[in-house]
């Protein structure tokens, strides 16, 4: 009888050190995590420190080009149409952006995931109702929904989050349901049934851990989508409004100047791309790290096989 050798030679230092060494093993994921930490710090403390600088107009420095240190380091990325330093604005905008996108993604994945679990697991008419609800949301133009809702209600941060979350629910709903339908028929779920496990236990202990990595991956992809959707709402005049700022809003504000001052849209766009990319890399790492059958790839250290 051959015996696959144990790979996890448990080192002293506890779980935290183990996770850190697994993160270090994947350099891309490590730097992604660093960048996200930076973005998070910006979101938390940016407005506190740079609010005044970010809103101070300086008409002599309109559309000041980047990499010019003559006006001071804060203008390193250039200035916008009203001469406000882009670096400071990006840092300050991180808060609103993260708040809106994060809350919307969290809400839609929670609601969509839960409904998907119910729809996939129950064999009764509840599943049909949930799926038709998803179809209704999907067939309704999301922008139209946004216009109607935000026209009737105040265009506040909470309402924007609500609209964005509702329109993204079907994505999670359908994916979760499809995965649950497949996982539910697996042997180990039946083995749990034979042991007399409750429905709650089967769903949360046996089904959810298998489908969670998929949901996390979709959520990170969706993060970027929601950031851009939020900016198009701002463009229509029903999203976040100036003087409040988000990265998406900055991109759309820079659009008229694209031909002569590309940096107005470029830097906030870069911030969006880097955030999404980092989230993606990190979720990819997490998928491997959370899967006991894949974990060896990280525990082996840098060099990857196969």
């Amino acid at each position: 009888m051959t015996d696959t050798q144990t790979l996890s030679g448990r080192k002293p230092g506890g779980a935290l050190a183990r996770w850190f060494s697994m993160l270090w093993a994947d350099k891309f994921a490590f730097f992604a995590a660093l960048f996200l930490l930076l973005a998070l710090l910006c979101a938390l403390f940016g407005p506190l420190l740079l609010e005044a600088v970010a809103t101070k107009q300086n008409l002599r420095g309109r559309n000041a080009p980047p990499f010019d240190l003559a006006r001071g380091w804060i203008y390193i990325l250039g200035a916008d149409a009203l001469g406000r330093p882009l670096l400071a604005r990006i840092v300050v905008a991180a808060q609103n952006t993260m708040l809106v996108a994060g809350a919307a993604v969290l809400a839609s994945s929670l609601v969509g995931g839960t409904l998907g679990l119910v729809a996939g697991y129950s064999r009764r008419s509840a599943s049909q109702w949930i799926m038709r609800l998803g179809d209704v949301i999907m067939s309704f133009p999301s922008l139209l929904l946004a216009v109607i809702v935000l026209y009737m209600l105040e265009p506040s941060v909470a309402n924007i989050v609500l609209v964005l979350a509702v329109t993204r629910i079907p994505i999670y709903l359908r994916t979760t349901r499809a995965e649950v339908l497949e996982v539910r028929e697996r042997m180990f779920v039946q083995a749990a049934t034979v042991m007399g496990a409750s429905h709650r236990r089967i769903v949360f202990r046996h089904i959810l851990p298998v489908i969670l990595p998929t949901l996390v991956t979709i959520a990170t992809l969706d993060f970027a989508f929601v950031m851009l959707a939020e900016s198009s709402l701002s463009f229509l005049g029903i999203g976040i409004q100036a003087p409040e700022i988000t990265w998406g809003l900055m991109v759309s504000q820079g659009r008229p100047y694209l031909t002569n001052a590309w940096w107005l849209s470029f830097w906030p766009g870069l911030a969006i791309i880097l955030t999404t990319l980092s989230l993606n890399l990190l979720s990819n790492w997490m998928r491997i790290a959370l899967d006991p059958t894949q974990r060896w790839r990280l525990e082996m250290g840098g060099r990857r096989n196969g």
């Binding site: 042997m187 039946q190 083995a191 007399g196 851990p209 899967d291 059958t293």
Partner: peptide, 22 residues
């Protein structure tokens, strides 16, 4: 039935699939 589940158990064909990999 829950009480009786204890008394009646099953071993499946393919242990790779009947054991939760996580």
């Amino acid at each position: 039935l829950f009480g009786l589940r204890r008394d009646l158990q099953m071993v499946f064909q393919d242990p790779t699939q009947s054991l939760n990999p996580r």
